[in-house]
Each structure stands twice: as structure tokens, then as C-alpha cells.
Design a protein around this nucleic acid. Structure first.
Length: 685
DNA sequence: GTTAGGG
DNA sequence: CCCTAAC
């Protein structure tokens, strides 16, 4: 009659926090306060360095050719608004004090409309708030650092600073790395301590730096020192267009374009992570069981697909990026490409009913219009992803024989998505994001196109191929291709897996499921009105009666049975496959226990003992649907182990020693109880 | 469905 | 967390 025995111990156990908690790693990463402090310093230094270099620049024209003919403008948090008009170049300082110093800042650089056809401005946005307070201030500085100068306290000058910074603009999988390393013996530190009008105050500014030409100012390749001031800047609408950068006093709209998902977007600690992983959709137990994790492994992933520069300067930021990625997602890195809800596959461009991703391509192209790049014609049903490359004239430097490239964007020519009409735009966005992520996250490799022709020989030097010539740089393109070695089943005839002009090459990557499969996989998700986070956290800490959650799960179930080929193409390679194995499984995400949960668990076990996990679950974790009693049992097991090892050996979020002591005590007590009872049972028998 | 224990 | 055996 009573299906679920309710235990009333007068103890509520672990109370699910109203706000889903990020995983441990995510929370750690989200220590905003620290970051802000660091950022402040970085930005401070940055502006100082910029000013210093500007001054140096003025003084010694030969100091940096990469820097000589460009305007740079920095936008910083400020409390004043100044505007200068230069007869040749615009220069502006505009600031709006939001009353929230360090809440937001904006840095931008404008490149003067000089001879450089690639003149552009990069804009980095960092909104250090969760409510889109908007841009705090802008400050645009031209080459004339002296304009700052009179406004500076003399004593604030000549402070020394060595600066290294990395900025990653993260825009929904489209990432751009802008590195700058500024070094100089003398940097002028711009400082305003008095808040007088006309002064530039940057003390509250968080860090950001971005320079058009990442060629370091000292002329040497970047070594990108410690990333002590690296900042990740999720920039949802990556196309805050360079051209639209307001140079005439227009207020800058820092709101990203993804209105329905950005409400807390830019700096939310866990937000970024979610950008790179589709929402989890836990399938049915059955599916899960079939999908034994041991049958899959994650193919090496090429996630950092958008590279701002191809010279050595990139390796470091990429490395850092990846490092960070793994650092923070180590526990869940299997996750993004296992959780798949919708079908996305390359397909004929005339696929009906499908929603093609033209907007993606377009939006990416926006950022690179004018680029003479080998783009993949869509009609080809091209495999892989092509890119636009802008080669910078100024970046080719014979003196060090380095070829510097900037890949402005990769295009995703053919992406097929099915989504019900009733889906929300937000869901559509997420779906596209998933698809893009899947593509990018798959075992990809980079192909090189030169004047539309694929460069096959990896052993050729750039010199041999002519890539080092400026005129050919313009015709240089990059593509993302399925990595054949990772995906044994993806057909890779010869060396030209993409740009195939036949009607059917689309089936190669990702392999197109049969029509029936497609139907099966068609997204049937209903508009849940939830954001990505909710989707992700849906079964996280849900309330017992959350219908939405269940709906989500059901929907997910409906679309989970992806054809294995799809998954395979997406990221994972079956290590070995059981002959009958045709379904796909996904491992539950790892959800480290919080201290609060541990506390609840300990308390429950103290009361109930170690052999009544179901009761423990009902008592202390009834609301935490994602915690099964098996989980609790396992956690207890690990807790006991943790308590026994030395603190140095412990990993993860530290559990208070007091709790661990209780764990040991309880464990000992209940073990003893069991030992006592054991003979009794024997006696009874 | 639960519990216990190995992986 | 997963899986399986045993109950």
C-alpha cells in the first residue's frame, strides 16, 4: 500500500539548496572576489603599460613597428567622461560610474583605418556582474599618450610594471585568444586618486587587454608568462562588431545578443562551462546500462578551434585554455559529448524540415567579412568546417621568418538540426550550440587550404607551399575535418575528406543516420522555458514534484537513442564493441558531494547505521533526486577511506575534519554493532 | 528493489 | 559512478 516508506526522524537531512550548486570545480573556479582583485591589478597594470608604451612609442618611433601605426584604445571603468577629438584620430574617454566599480569593464582596441586592410577593432567585454549592469565605462586612448599625461598625477608615473595577460574571449564555442604580453622597463602608471574630472581612473577596472596585433611589443615571440592575469571573457554575441564600435560617443551596449540566456551570463562561474557542453539528458536506466562506460573513450579533442593567431603566440593561450578546461572539468570531461539530445549531422543542403545553420555561418562570417579565405561552399555538403583566415600584412616578418596568421573564424557549413516547431528560440539556440559543440568536440583535425586547394603533405614547409608569401596568405584557409584516426568508420578516401562535390559525401561526417533513425532522433523537446542551466541541472537538485524536470527527462529519453555512428562521429570512439552492442549509454555526471551533503549523510548514518542506505536516502536525501542510495553508500565508503588517509592525500573539496571524525566514529560504532549482531544471528539460527 | 562489494 | 551478485 505504501509504496515508499517514509521515515520520520524529525530530521530533514540534506536540504537541497534553492540554487543548484555548481560542481566543486566550478564553484572553486567561481571565486569571484579573488578574481576581481587580480583583475583589477591586471587592468591597472595594463593601462599603465599601454600608456607607457604609448609614451615610449612617441619617444622612439622604432620601438615597435607592430604598434606604430595603430590606434589603441582601452576602455576602462571610469568615473569621468572625457572626450577628445583628434583631427586625425578619434579618441574618447567615456565613463559611467555605475556605482559598482569593478562590476564591469570594457576594453577595446581600435585599429586605425590605416593602410592595413585588416584594420579592425577587437572588443573584449567583461561584465563582472550577474545582472547585466552593463558597460561601466569606456576609455579610448589613441597613440597620444600625452593626452593622458597632463591629467595624471606626476607621482603616479614611472611605476614599473611587467605585465602578462591573457584574454580569452569566449563566445559560445567561438573562442578567440588575444594575448598580450607587455614588457617594458618603465611603465607609466595611470592613476587617479582624486577623482578629479578629467582624470582617468582605472583602479577599479578589472583586467582585460587586447591588442590587434598580438605580436609582442618587444618584437619577440610571446612566451606568455604566467597567466596571472588571465581572464576568461564569455562573450556571447561574439559579433559585437568591430565596425559598430562606437567611436563617436555612442553608448556601448554590452549586452550580449543572446538575450534569453545571458541574464547572468558573462561571468557566472558555471556558465561558461555550460557553453561547452550540451545539457544533460539522462536517459532511461536501460539505456544507461547498455552504454557501459568502458566501451567508450573520449577521442582526443580539439576544442579550441578558433585561433586568433597562428604563430607561436597561440600555443600558450591554447595551452592555458585547455589546461583550464581540463582543470575545471576534469571530472566531467566525458560529459559534453555523451549527453546528446538532438541529432545533428551534416546533411544535404536541401534537407527539408531541417533548420540549417546559416545563421551560424553568417554570424561567424560577419566577423570576418572581407577576408579572402577559402570558404567551403555550402552546396558541397562539405564535410568538416572551414575557416576564414585573415593574414595580417604587418604580421609577416621576414626577419624571423615566422608566418603569423590570424584565423578569424571557422565556419560550420553544414549542420543539420531537427527541432520541433514548438521549441523555443532558446532551445533552438541551445540545440545549435550542442551541435556546434559536438562538431567541434569531435575528433577533429585541421586541414589547410591554399587557394582552395587542400594541402595534403604535412611534411612540406610553409616555405615550400608558399604559405609564407603574403599574397598567398590571403588564400589560406583552414578547415576542421573529422579525424580519421579517431574515427575508423568515417570514410576518408585519399586525403580529401572534404570539399567533395558529390551528392552524397555528407554521409561521411558526421555519418548521417538513416531516415528512420533521424525520425527517432528528432528532437521532441517541448519548450520548457528553461535555460541551459536549468536543463543541465534539471535532475540536480530538483524538488520532488518538479514536473518540468520529469518532462525534460522524458524528452531526453525520447531523443537519446542516437545511432551509434553519430556518437562515434561526435566524440567517442568505441574501444571495443560487443557484437550486439548498438545502443549508447551515458555515464551520469559526477557530482561531488558538498560539505552540506556530507554533513547530512554523516548525520543520517550516525542515526541509522551503515546498512540502511535506503533509509538514509529517504531520511537525508529525499529531495536530492540525483543521489541514489547507492550513491550515498558509495559516498560513505569514500568518506571512510578519506577519513583514514592523511589530509595530504585527500583530494577534492576538503571535508571538515570534524565530519571525518564523525565518519570514523560512526563507522566504528556501526561496525561494532554489526559484529555484535552477527553472533546473535548465528545463535538464533 | 536493496545491499554489499569490487572495479 | 558503474556493475554485479546476492538477497
Amino acid at each position: 500500500m505504501v509504496l515508499q516508506k517514509r521515515l520520520d526522524y524529525g530530521f530533514n537531512g540534506y536540504q537541497v539548496p534553492p540554487t543548484p550548486r555548481a560542481t566543486r570545480s566550478a564553484r572553486r573556479r567561481g571565486s569571484l572576489k579573488k578574481k576581481i582583485g587580480q583583475n583589477q591589478m591586471c587592468a591597472f597594470d595594463l593601462l599603465a603599460v599601454v600608456a607607457g608604451n604609448l609614451l615610449l612609442e612617441k619617444g622612439s618611433p622604432s620601438s615597435s613597428d607592430a604598434f606604430a601605426d595603430k590606434d589603441h584604445c582601452l576602455v576602462v571603468n571610469n568615473t569621468v567622461k572625457n572626450e577628445w577629438q583628434d583631427e586625425e584620430k578619434n579618441m574618447k574617454v567615456e565613463a559611467h560610474d555605475q556605482g559598482n566599480p569593478a562590476r564591469s569593464f570594457f576594453v577595446s582596441e581600435l585599429v586605425s583605418q590605416g593602410n592595413d586592410q585588416n584594420c579592425s577593432s577587437k572588443e573584449l567585454l567583461f561584465a563582472q556582474n550577474e545582472h547585466n549592469l552593463g558597460l561601466a565605462s569606456t576609455l579610448a586612448a589613441s597613440e597620444c599618450a600625452e593626452r593622458f599625461d597632463p591629467k595624471l598625477d606626476s607621482k603616479s608615473k614611472n611605476e614599473i610594471g611587467t605585465f602578462a595577460s591573457k584574454v580569452e574571449v569566449d563566445s559560445s564555442g567561438y573562442r578567440e585568444f588575444n594575448d598580450c604580453k607587455l614588457e617594458g622597463s618603465t611603465k607609466d602608471l595611470i592613476k587617479d586618486e582624486s577623482n578629479k574630472s578629467g582624470k582617468v581612473q582605472i583602479g577599479t577596472m578589472a583586467n582585460i587587454c587586447c591588442f590587434e596585433d598580438p605580436v609582442d611589443w618587444d618584437g619577440k615571440p610571446h612566451a606568455l608568462a604566467s597567466s596571472d592575469s588571465s581572464a576568461k571573457v564569455p562573450l556571447w554575441g561574439n559579433n559585437i562588431s568591430r565596425s559598430s564600435y562606437p567611436t563617436n560617443g555612442d553608448s556601448i551596449n554590452v549586452d550580449n545578443r543572446d538575450d534569453d540566456e545571458n541574464s547572468s551570463g558573462c561571468t557566472h562561474p558555471s556558465k561558461k562551462k555550460k557553453l561547452f557542453r550540451p545539457a544533460p539528458h539522462i536517459g532511461g536506466r536501460r539505456i544507461r546500462k547498455i552504454l557501459a562506460s568502458k566501451y567508450w573513450k573520449v577521442a582526443p579533442r580539439l576544442k579550441d578551434v578558433t585561433i586568433s593567431n597562428a604563430d607561436g603566440a597561440d600555443s600558450m593561450p591554447l595551452y592555458h585554455k585547455r589546461k583550464n578546461y581540463y582543470k575545471y572539468q576534469r571530472s566531467e570531461r566525458l560529459y559534453p559529448f555523451k549527453k546528446r539530445k538532438h541529432v545533428f549531422c551534416a546533411s544535404e543542403s536541401n534537407s527539408e524540415g531541417g533548420i540549417c545553420n546559416e545563421f551560424i555561418s553568417n554570424s561567424l562570417q560577419k566577423g570576418s567579412d572581407g577576408d579572402a579565405a577559402g570558404s567551403t561552399p555550402k552546396k558541397h555538403g562539405a564535410i568538416g568546417v572551414s575557416s576564414s583566415v585573415a593574414c595580417q600584412h604587418s604580421s609577416f616578418r621576414p626577419r624571423d621568418s615566422h608566418v603569423k596568421l590570424r584565423i578569424k573564424s571557422f565556419k560550420v557549413p553544414e549542420l543539420f538540426i531537427e527541432i520541433p516547431e514548438s521549441a523555443t528560440v532558446g532551445l533552438l539556440k541551445r540545440t545549435v550550440m550542442e551541435a556546434v559543440t559536438a562538431i567541434l568536440g569531435g575528433g577533429l583535425r585541421v586541414g589547410v587550404l591554399l587557394q582552395g586547394k587542400r594541402v595534403c603533405d604535412d611534411n612540406k614547409t610553409l616555405l615550400q607551399t608558399g604559405i609564407c608569401h603574403n599574397n598567398r596568405l590571403n588564400a589560406l584557409g583552414f578547415s576542421l575535418e573529422p579525424n580519421c584516426s579517431q574515427s575508423p568508420h568515417s570514410l576518408c578516401p585519399g586525403d580529401s575528406p572534404f570539399l567533395i562535390d558529390t551528392p552524397q559525401p555528407v554521409s561521411r561526417y558526421p555519418p548521417v543516420p538513416s531516415l528512420a533513425q533521424k525520425t527517432t532522433c528528432a528532437a521532441s523537446a517541448e519548450p520548457h522555458g528553461t535555460d541551459l542551466e536549468n536543463l543541465i541541472e534539471s535532475d540536480h537538485d530538483s524538488a520532488p514534484s518538479s514536473t518540468d524536470v520529469d518532462k525534460t527527462r522524458n524528452d531526453a529519453k525520447a531523443v537519446i537513442p542516437l545511432p551509434e555512428m553519430n556518437i562515434e562521429a561526435l566524440a567517442m570512439v568505441p574501444v571495443h564493441r560487443k557484437s550486439k552492442q548498438s545502443e549508447i549509454v551515458q555515464r551520469r555526471i559526477r557530482r561531488p558531494f558538498s560539505v552540506a551533503e556530507v554533513e547530512a549523510l554523516v548525520q543520517a548514518v550516525e542515526k541509522l547505521g551503515t546498512g540502511r542506505w535506503r533509509d538514509v536516502k529517504l531520511r537525508a536525501f529525499d529531495n536530492a533526486k540525483h543521489r541514489t542510495y547507492v550513491d550515498l553508500k558509495d559516498k560513505w565508503k569514500t568518506l571512510v577511506h578519506t577519513a583514514r588517509i592523511s589530509p595530504q592525500q585527500r583530494r577534492g573539496e576538503p571535508v571538515p575534519q570534524e565530519l571525518l571524525d564523525r565518519v570514523l566514529a560512526a563507522h566504528a560504532y556501526w561496525s561494532q554493532q554489526q559484529a555484535k549482531q552477527q553472533p546473535e544471528t548465528c545463535l538464533l539460527l
